[in-house]
């Protein structure tokens, strides 16, 4: 029998935990209890970068980790977070589950990870307390909280906003108008009650926030073929289950946010947004030839 330690940073019920719990359920059933999974949640083992380091060290076998923290291990993952890349869910699935997504997962092997599948937080959208946003011009001067990431900072700078890095949580800062807005996947707006303090939401879908369901390469290579097939199958089904689940819930979330009085812009001028950030593909972050080549292929494929 085998015990898999799987780590996530989020609390039970969050997107990552749904993948983890489903995977645990599937693999334990399919292996008739031969393989058991212990899920470490709520960052009890460390933050996402630290979990990845622990997977490299072999103290943890698997993790469901958002794409962002991977980029210090392998810059190719930045491609997934490129702004306004995917048009919608179907396109994201098509690309990430297809050969281009495989290229990213394969590349992770050079830094000691076995990339197994993509699951998701979903598209990030913009909310603010100042004004309705439909075009890039509406964003000018808005103070938007961003994660401490060079890419996210650059995106919002290019769009003309005043990006403000700030540690989570940010409810008070939004309420006191220390910042005007924030950008996150839909579930965050619901769970953190941002509808109480943010009047406007724009379905910018500016960045597709995905997780990579990942294992340690050394551990993976030592597994039997049967176990590898079993794990790969279970994580794939868990990931697809979670993506479907998340999208089904998004419809309810939209309805709730509207009912709570948020004014939602469903169809912003995405073409104009795309045009504004078009030059980002030449920025330093994407200058590595390998990364740039894949980015160009991605942009072609999503056009």
């Amino acid at each position: 029998s085998m015990k898999i330690k799987l780590a996530v940073v989020t609390k039970p019920g969050s997107a990552q935990n749904i993948v983890a719990d489903k995977f645990k359920e599937l693999i334990e059933a399919r292996s008739q209890g031969e393989i058991t999974v212990k899920v470490f949640h709520s960052a009890s083992l460390g933050n996402e970068t630290e979990i990845l380091q622990q997977i490299q060290m072999g103290t943890v076998e698997m993790g469901i980790i958002t794409a962002g923290p991977f980029d210090t291990f392998d810059p190719i993952v930045r491609v997934v977070n490129y702004p306004f890349l995917f048009k919608d869910n179907d396109q994201a699935d098509l690309i990430l589950d297809g050969p281009l997504g495989q290229e990213i997962l394969k590349s992770l092997e050079t830094s000691g990870f076995k990339g197994l599948h993509f699951s998701e937080n979903g598209f990030r959208n913009l909310t603010n307390s100042k004004k309705a946003v439909k075009t890039p011009d509406d964003i000018k001067g808005l103070k938007i909280r961003v994660m401490a990431s060079a890419l996210h900072k650059t995106i919002w700078q290019t769009l003309g906003a005043n990006p403000t890095p700030m540690p989570w949580p940010i409810y008070t800062e939004l309420e006191q108008s220390v910042i005007d807005g924030q950008e996150n996947p839909l579930w965050v707006m619901e769970v953190y009650k941002f509808y109480e303090i943010q009047k406007y939401m724009t379905m910018t879908r500016h960045v597709y926030s995905s997780h990579i369901d990942v294992a340690g390469l050394k551990w993976w290579n030592a597994l039997s073929d049967d176990n590898r097939a079993l794990i790969a199958g279970a994580i794939k089904d868990a990931a697809i289950f979670q993506r479907t689940d998340n999208r089904a819930k998004n419809a309810g979330r939209m309805a709730l946010l509207g009912k709570k009085g948020m004014i939602i812009e469903q169809h912003p001028d995405v073409t104009a947004f795309r045009a504004r950030v078009a030059d980002l593909k030449n920025m330093d972050l994407y200058s590595d030839p390998r990364v740039n080549a894949l980015l160009i292929k991605m942009i072609e494929a999503t056009r």
Partner: peptide, 19 residues
């Protein structure tokens, strides 16, 4: 089973906080 390196990671991570 655990490499000692993880101690260093935890020591730094434990103190690396804005709060």
């Amino acid at each position: 089973d655990y490499p000692l390196m993880v101690m260093i990671q935890r020591m730094v991570s434990g103190t690396d906080s804005f709060h």
